Amino acid sequence: MAVKNLLALVVLLGVLGVSVSVPNGGGLDLDYYRHKCPDAESIVRRITIQYVSHQRSLAAALLRMHFHDCFVRGCDGSILLKSPAKDAERDAFPNLSVRGYEVVDAAKAALEKKCPGVVSCADVLALVARDAVLVIQGPWWPVPLGRRDGRISKASEANLPSPFVDVTVLKKNFADKGLNAKDLVVLSGAHTIGISNCGLINARIYNFTGKGDFDPSMNPSYVRALKKKCKPTDLRTPVEMDPGSGKKFDTHYYNAVAQKKGYFTSDSALLDDPETKSYIETQVSTAESSSFAKDFADSMVKLGMIEVLTGTNGEIRKKCAFVN
Rank of each mutant, 00 (worst) to 15 (best):
V124T: 05
V323D: 09
S78V: 00
D131A: 02
M1T: 09
G199K: 14
A88G: 08
E41I: 03
L184T: 10
F93M: 12
L30I: 08
E307N: 14
H252T: 15
A287W: 03
G74I: 10
D29T: 00
T265G: 01
I316L: 13
R90Y: 06
D69S: 05
R130S: 04
L187W: 04
T233S: 12
A110I: 05
K231A: 14
G246Y: 03
G14F: 02
V11K: 14
V52E: 02
D213I: 06
C230T: 02
A60S: 11
A106P: 12
E307F: 07
C70Y: 11
V143G: 08
R236K: 10
L184Q: 05
F164C: 14
V169D: 15
S285P: 08
R130T: 01
N180F: 02
D91K: 08
V15D: 07
G25D: 07
P94L: 06
V143K: 07
F264W: 15
R236M: 04
M305P: 05
V20E: 04
V44E: 03
P161T: 13
M1F: 09
V223Y: 05
L200D: 00
N180H: 00
K247I: 00
F214L: 10
D215M: 04
L187C: 01
K260Q: 12
F67S: 02
P243N: 12
V20R: 02
M65W: 13
D76S: 11
A92E: 14
S266G: 05
L127W: 01
V11C: 08
L9H: 04
E275K: 15
T233Q: 08
K229F: 09
A225R: 05
D273Y: 08
A126K: 01
L9V: 01
T233C: 00
E240K: 10
E102D: 10
K211N: 13
P38E: 03
I47G: 01
L58E: 05
N324W: 07
